[in-house]
Design a protein around this nucleic acid. Sequence first.
DNA 1: GTTGAGCGTT
Length: 131
Amino acid sequence: MRKASLIQFARQVIKSSSSNCRFFSSSPSNNKLFVAGLSWSVDEKSLKEAFSSFGKVSEVRIMYDKDSGRSRGFGFVNFSSEDEAGSAKDAMDGKAFLGRPLKVSFALDRVNREAMSTRHSNKGTTFSHSR
DNA sequence: GTTGAGCGTT
């Protein structure tokens, strides 16, 4: 048996069980990585360049503050495979990036954009009529 | 010009 097969086996169990994946894997997410401890001057392309060295980065999302426009100091990195995500996490977690110790862990899937807004079917009232 | 644990749409 291979250790890679163990991961694939875990994924099948995750797909089979809707929410019990926490018991089979230490990672709540497969290829989504939560990156914190960043400097406030770090942007998405910098993190992508840093993490793409360990694997194929599919998406990089850094959270910014809408009140000040500056970065909140944390973000998310999506990898093409969980193996690369785990390698990047194991490699970048605890290391330093732009002068600050990096904190990398698996991300919690907070929301799916596909199921986000579809509730605007309510079109009976019109606020534009206020005068 | 600032600050420093965290899990999301800026």
